[in-house]
C-alpha cells in the first residue's frame, strides 16, 4: 500500500478514496501563511463548529456545550490534497438578518470576506430550525458545503436524515458528520476541496415563494444592481437587504464596496474590510 507522502496519479482509485485522503490532511495549527483557499465555518450556535475547526486545524480552541461560546472569529490553517487552506470559525448565529454584533461579524465575513468555501454546520437533530440559517447563507454565497453534524445524536434519537434529498433541494454537497468522533471529516474535506477547486459547482437553493409584490421588487432591484455591479455573486441577497433597509448594506452600496465583491479579480480580498472585520473582532 501507500504512505501519505506518495503522490497518487489523479484518476487512480486511491486518489478519490476518502480513506486515502484523510492521510493528506496536515493540521497546520495557527500557521496560515500562503493559503490557497479561505474556508468559513458558519452555523447555528452549539452545532459543533469549533469541534470541526479543531479537527481540521489541530488547534484546541475550547468548545463549550452552550450557545454563544464563540463570539469572535478564530482562525487556523490546514493542508489537504496539496492545497493550503485558511479556516475561519465564525460566531454561531440563528440568522443573518438582525443587528447584533456577533451576527454582523458572521454576515460581513461571508459577504465581504468572500470565503472560497463556506462550511455550514447544521445540527441534524434540529434540522428545520438550522435550515433557516442555511438558506440565508445560500442566498449570500454560491460556494457552500453543508456539514450535517451531530449525526450520532440524531441516530440515538431515532432520527434519520436523507442527505441525498437534502443535497438535491439545497444544491450543495451535504456530508453527514459526527465531528466529536471525527466521523465524516475526510468526506467533508473532499467536498470542501471539490467546491474550492471548482470540481463541484453548486447550484444553491434560492427562496422562490415570496409574495408577488416582494418578488417583483427584488427582480427590479436585481436588474439595477447587475447593471451597476456586473459579476456581483449575490445581487438577489443584496436586493433583499436593501428592501429590508439594512444600514450596513446601504453604506456598502454608497461607498462602492459592492464593486469589490464582483468576481473579476479573484484572489484579491479588499484590505479595508478585512481590517474592519479585525477591528470588530478585537474591539
Amino acid at each position: 500500500m501507500t504512505t501519505p507522502t506518495v503522490k497518487i496519479p489523479a484518476g487512480h482509485n486511491c486518489a478519490t478514496c476518502p480513506a486515502h485522503n484523510i492521510g493528506n490532511l496536515t493540521k497546520l495549527g495557527i500557521n496560515m501563511e500562503n493559503w490557497d483557499y479561505v474556508v468559513a465555518l458558519a452555523g447555528n450556535p452549539n452545532t459543533g463548529k469549533s469541534t470541526i475547526f479543531n479537527a481540521l486545524t489541530g488547534l484546541r480552541q475550547h468548545t463549550g456545550n452552550w450557545p454563544g461560546k464563540t463570539v469572535t472569529r478564530a482562525e487556523g490553517g490546514f493542508e489537504f490534497g496539496s492545497h493550503r487552506y485558511k479556516i475561519v470559525d465564525l460566531p454561531g448565529t440563528y440568522s443573518l438578518l438582525s443587528t447584533s454584533l456577533d451576527e454582523e461579524v458572521a454576515r460581513n465575513f461571508i459577504l465581504f470576506g468572500q470565503p472560497d468555501v463556506t462550511i455550514i454546520v447544521a445540527d441534524a437533530t434540529r434540522l428545520e430550525r438550522n435550515l433557516n440559517l442555511v438558506l440565508q447563507v445560500l442566498e449570500i454565497t454560491d460556494r457552500a458545503v453543508l456539514a450535517l453534524n451531530l449525526m450520532d445524536e440524531a441516530r440515538r434519537h431515532g432520527i434519520t436524515v436523507d442527505e441525498r434529498s437534502l443535497a438535491r433541494d439545497l444544491g450543495v454537497p451535504v456530508i453527514p458528520t459526527a465531528a466529536r468522533s471525527r466521523q465524516g471529516v475526510p468526506e467533508l474535506l473532499q467536498a470542501v476541496h471539490d467546491v474550492a477547486t471548482g470540481a463541484f459547482v453548486c447550484q444553491p437553493h434560492r427562496i422562490k415563494n415570496e409574495p408577488p409584490a416582494l418578488k417583483s421588487a427584488i427582480k427590479a432591484l436585481v436588474e439595477q444592481l447587475e447593471t451597476a455591479f456586473p459579476g456581483l455573486p449575490n445581487a438577489r441577497w443584496v436586493a433583499l437587504r436593501l428592501l429590508d433597509g439594512d444600514q450596513r448594506i446601504i453604506e456598502a452600496v454608497k461607498r462602492g464596496e459592492l464593486g469589490d465583491l464582483t468576481r473579476d479579480d479573484p484572489g484579491q480580498t479588499n484590505g479595508d474590510l478585512v481590517l474592519q472585520l479585525q477591528e470588530v473582532q478585537h474591539a
Binding site: 434540522l127 428545520e128 430550525r129 435550515l131 433557516n132 442555511v134 438558506l135 431515532g158 432520527i159 434519520t160 436524515v161 436523507d162 442527505e163 434529498s165 437534502l166 433541494d169 439545497l170 437553493h205 427562496i207 422562490k208 415563494n209
Partner: peptide, 12 residues
C-alpha cells in the same frame, strides 16, 4: 422553504 425541505429529508 426551510420547513418544506426539512419535512422531505427528515424522518422522526
Amino acid at each position: 422553504d426551510a420547513a418544506r425541505i426539512a419535512d422531505r429529508a427528515v424522518t422522526y
